[in-house]
């Protein structure tokens, strides 16, 4: 163990971990809000809405997150006068914000696909039964389809959170001192390979914790389905 390096960079790596978690929590939350309208548009009767949301989802799911981050971060830098004119430059000036924006758009596309799949996976008999009980289509969607779809979506959404934690490491390449950013800094100063291993342990702890908490959550939320 390189105790000197641990004493110097250990606390900073924990700070970096906090930045990573902030990035992920904000992006996942905003992405969840955005995913609903995108998923609904994807399933709407309007061809235009379907087309737009298809294009959006295809773009963000079909290109690398790193390339998207570069596009937003350095692309925005190129359009500074225009962004200033509409009063948004102060947001795009900040690398953390650019990352949150990119990650949100990215995860919203994946989450929308998860929601769409889950909604379609709810058996048709469920809405037929609800209809015969006299519920209107709005009630059927909100009270019958959505709760069941969310349960189906729970596992893939958990995977998406984990993918976001891992993916967020690209923020380090555009000056954000997240866990990966601090690790790179520490490595560039100490040239000690150990720091990468410490970072690996931290990432594994976070990912495993989330995985286990998610399993518990799923176990709890599906308790009514477990008799037969």
């Amino acid at each position: 163990m390189n105790w000197d390096a641990l004493a110097t960079y250990g606390p900073r790596m924990l700070q970096g971990l906090v930045v990573t978690l902030q990035l992920v929590v904000i992006s996942i939350t905003l992405g969840a809000l955005l995913a609903w309208p995108v998923a609904l548009a994807r399933m709407s009767r309007s061809r235009i809405l379907r087309g737009i949301s298809f294009g959006y989802m295809y773009f963000f799911r079909g290109t690398p997150l790193l390339a998207q981050t570069f596009l937003v971060y350095y692309g925005a830098g190129q359009f500074r006068p225009q962004l200033e004119a509409v009063g948004l430059w102060w947001l795009f000036r900040d690398a953390f914000f650019c990352c949150v924006l990119t990650f949100t758009l990215n995860t919203a596309a994946y989450q929308a696909e998860i929601l769409r799949g889950a909604i379609r996976a709810v058996p048709i008999g469920q809405s037929e039964a609800a209809m015969s009980l006299g519920l209107n289509s709005r009630q059927i969607f909100r009270k019958i389809i959505v709760p069941q779809a969310l349960l189906i979506a729970l596992r893939p959404l958990g995977n998406e959170v984990i993918l976001m934690i891992k993916g967020s490491s690209v923020a380090a390449i555009v000056t954000v001192f997240d866990l990966m950013g601090v690790t790179r800094l520490a490595y560039s100063r100490t040239f000690d390979f150990q720091v990468y291993l410490w970072a690996a342990v931290l990432y594994l702890i976070v990912v495993e914790t989330i995985r286990r908490v998610w399993d518990k959550l799923e176990h709890y939320l599906t308790r009514h389905l477990r008799h037969a």
């Binding site: 925005a76 830098g77 500074r80 000036r93 900040d94 000056t175």
Partner: peptide, 11 residues
């Protein structure tokens, strides 16, 4: 180059 780019961008 990226430092320069961001100085011009005003970041």
């Amino acid at each position: 180059d990226e430092v320069n780019l961001d100085l011009v961008a005003g970041r």
